[in-house]
Simulated assay, not measured.
Amino acid sequence: MVEIDLTPPAAAAKAAEQGLKLRKEHKRGGTRVGVARAHQLMKREPLSADVVKRMASYFARHAVDKNGKDFDNAADPSAGFIAWQLWGGDAGRDWADKKKAELTKKG
């Protein structure tokens, strides 16, 4: 049986790092869970299937945040954007969705 590689991609790690920097700079965005997730992503060590599924769920719930005014305003990013980055940004979303589908197919 083929194992599914659950190592986060470099682009997700980079987005998580950006999220931590923005959170520190703007003093907003994300929760303790989001900060912990950012640190996990930055290590680029394989995540558990459960964490990958939680990531996919997070992005599905928070996709609406991207419609907000000034979501990714470089000078003054929204708290939603900062949180999104903590979870790996668009790269993290795409990866988590892909891996969730692979995990679901595998059973």
Rank of each mutant, 00 (worst) to 15 (best):
M1S: 14
M1Y: 05
M1I: 06
I4F: 09
I4P: 06
I4M: 10
L6Y: 14
L6D: 00
T7Q: 08
T7S: 13
T7K: 15
T7A: 03
P8S: 14
P9L: 09
A11I: 02
A11G: 04
A11D: 12
A12T: 06
A12N: 11
A12G: 04
K14C: 01
K14Y: 04
A15V: 01
A15W: 03
Q18T: 13
G19M: 02
L20A: 05
R23Q: 15
K24R: 13
E25W: 01
K27V: 02
K27M: 11
R28F: 03
R28W: 05
R28G: 02
R28N: 04
G29L: 02
G29I: 01
G29Q: 03
G29E: 00
G30D: 11
R32E: 14
R32C: 03
V33C: 01
V33Y: 13
V33S: 10
V33W: 10
G34F: 07
A36W: 11
R37E: 08
R37I: 11
A38K: 05
H39P: 00
Q40D: 12
L41R: 02
L41F: 00
L41S: 00
M42K: 11
R44S: 09
E45C: 01
P46S: 04
P46D: 10
S48R: 04
A49C: 02
A49M: 02
D50I: 05
V51M: 06
V51I: 12
V52H: 12
V52K: 11
K53N: 08
R54E: 15
R54M: 08
M55Q: 11
M55A: 07
M55V: 00
A56H: 07
A56Q: 09
A56I: 01
S57R: 11
S57P: 00
S57C: 02
F59V: 07
A60R: 15
A60S: 14
R61W: 06
R61D: 08
H62E: 13
H62A: 07
H62P: 00
A63I: 06
A63M: 10
V64L: 10
N67L: 14
G68L: 10
G68T: 04
G68A: 12
F71A: 09
F71Y: 12
D72A: 14
D72Q: 13
D72R: 08
D72S: 15
A75T: 05
D76L: 10
D76Y: 12
D76V: 00
P77Y: 09
P77T: 12
S78H: 13
S78W: 06
G80W: 04
G80I: 03
G80R: 08
F81V: 00
A83N: 15
A83R: 09
A83S: 14
A83F: 00
W84D: 06
W84S: 02
Q85D: 01
Q85Y: 06
L86H: 04
W87Q: 15
W87V: 02
W87F: 12
G89A: 03
G89L: 04
D90F: 07
D90Y: 07
A91V: 05
A91H: 10
G92M: 09
R93F: 00
R93S: 07
D94V: 05
W95I: 06
W95S: 08
A96E: 05
K98L: 10
K98E: 15
K99P: 02
L103F: 11
L103H: 09
K106T: 03
K106N: 06
G107I: 02
G107M: 08
G107H: 08
